[in-house]
């Protein structure tokens, strides 16, 4: 991977929610992370460990209570098309066709006229050709996930935040889209933050796997994955990496 200039730094980030009874629920506790351009970083940890919370903070959808979160030195305060977010559920706009969903972000930023071709390019890259005029209720779940990814990537974001976008898919479709994501990373060298429950997915896609502790989440391991692409899912090195991550996740023994 090519290391570039862009840099995302989270330092001592803490985020808590206040329940209706006034009880503070700490989701993230003193979380630290530094990601450089071209890096794919997987965040893995048990349910409720705050990994999605962290992703929402990077997206600018939420505010944290403590710590600093900067992109290229500027604090993150609001959403930006520069930081694309692919949500867990595709939640495509049912009133738009696939083509218009993919073009949505460009139109919202008045860039559609200049970047029209990107829409078709993205549709082709995600294997959606022929479905441009289809409405979301007419396409499969796997396709919906691809449309959601295409909708985010068309903006050429420098940071791509993936919140388990493939969790609802069958194993085969998931593998296909994982390869699409790798192709895209190879071409555009973005910063990719991937939240997942799937250790195999984390090892297959990322350069580093960050393991989070149960709530409140904090980083307990940073495992580099230095295997060359394309990665063989059943090679001994790959399986050894999966073991390494699994060991780090095995909190009770630790």
């Amino acid at each position: 991977m090519v290391a570039g200039n862009h840099q995302l730094i989270a330092a001592h980030v803490s985020r808590w929610f206040t329940g209706e009874d006034g009880v503070k629920l700490l989701a993230l506790d003193d979380f630290n992370l530094e990601v450089n351009q071209g890096e794919v970083v997987a965040l893995i940890g048990p349910s409720g460990c705050g990994k999605s919370t962290f992703l929402r903070l990077v997206a600018g959808l939420d505010e944290m209570q403590e710590g600093t979160l900067t992109y290229d030195g500027d604090p993150i305060t609001a959403p930006s098309p520069n930081r694309g977010f692919v949500f867990q559920q595709a939640n495509l706009y049912p009133w738009l066709t696939v083509e218009k969903i993919v073009a949505f972000g460009l139109k919202a930023n008045n860039e559609y006229q200049e970047k029209k071709l990107r829409v078709q390019e993205m549709i082709d890259l995600m294997g959606l050709s022929g479905f441009e005029k289809s409405y979301p209720h007419q396409i499969s779940g796997g396709m919906a996930a691809r449309v959601a990814i295409a909708q985010t990537l068309v903006m050429d974001p420098e940071v791509i935040l993936l919140d388990e976008p493939l969790s609802a898919l069958d194993a085969f479709t998931r593998a296909v889209i994982q390869d699409e994501i790798l192709k895209m990373v190879d071409r555009f060298h973005p910063i990719v933050l991937l939240v997942t429950h799937d250790i195999e997915e984390a090892v297959y896609l990322s350069d580093r796997v960050i393991v989070l502790s149960p709530r409140p989440g904090t980083n307990i391991a940073d495992i580099p994955v230095d295997l060359p692409h394309p990665r063989d899912r059943i090679s001994p090195e790959f399986i050894a990496k999966r073991h390494e991550v699994l060991d780090a996740l095995n909190f009770e023994e630790a």
Binding site: A59, G60, L61, P79, S80, P81, N82, R83, G84, F85, F87, N91, Y93, F104, G105, A108, N109, Q151, T152, M155
Partner: peptide, 10 residues
């Protein structure tokens, strides 16, 4: 629906 549009800078 709204957050999706927000993250795309709408």
């Amino acid at each position: 629906f709204i957050e999706r549009a927000e993250t795309m800078g709408a």
